[in-house]
């Protein structure tokens, strides 16, 4: 189940285990405006939050995610856009929004009194 480990120690960073770092995403798509993204070693954490933020994007028509089998470390995310952006752009926008949300929560949290 574990994907292949990179051999160099520079693949190490202090947050994420190195094995979770390789071949993260694959794209299955025959049209620019819809695609299924297949994530390795991701689960509801990223799946549900991406699904949520994509649904909140007015340029996205549909997004949904599924974990086809619990003992398979894959997560599928389907995106269909309203054709003025590609599904990949929509995904990148979504990731950006999530990062902005996180950074803002962190900033606000750091300002709270001890």
């Amino acid at each position: 189940m574990t994907s292949s480990y990179p051999n160099s120690s520079d693949a190490c960073n202090s947050f994420i285990p190195p094995s979770f770092n390789v071949n993260k995403v694959e794209i299955i798509s025959d049209r620019p405006d819809c695609a299924t993204f297949v994530f390795t070693d991701e689960d509801h954490t990223i799946g549900n939050s991406l699904h949520y933020i994509l649904m909140k994007n007015p340029q996205v028509d549909f997004s949904g995610y599924s974990i086809p089998h619990p003992s398979d470390n894959r997560m599928n995310l389907r995106i269909q856009t309203k054709s003025n952006i590609t599904s990949q752009e929509a995904l990148l926008n979504g990731l950006n929004d999530l990062k902005n949300i996180s950074n803002h929560i962190l900033e606000t949290f750091n300002q709270t009194e001890k």
């Binding site: 947050f15 979770f20 071949n23 995403v25 990731l95 999530l98 990062k99 996180s102």
Partner: peptide, 26 residues
């Protein structure tokens, strides 16, 4: 307190990893 801060940083880091991997694909 540190745990919550770490969790937020990890969330950002996870997004970054996906972004990098998407850009590599292209």
């Amino acid at each position: 307190r540190e745990l919550f801060q770490e969790a937020l940083k990890i969330f950002v880091e996870k997004c970054n990893i996906i972004e990098t991997s998407l850009n590599k694909l292209n």
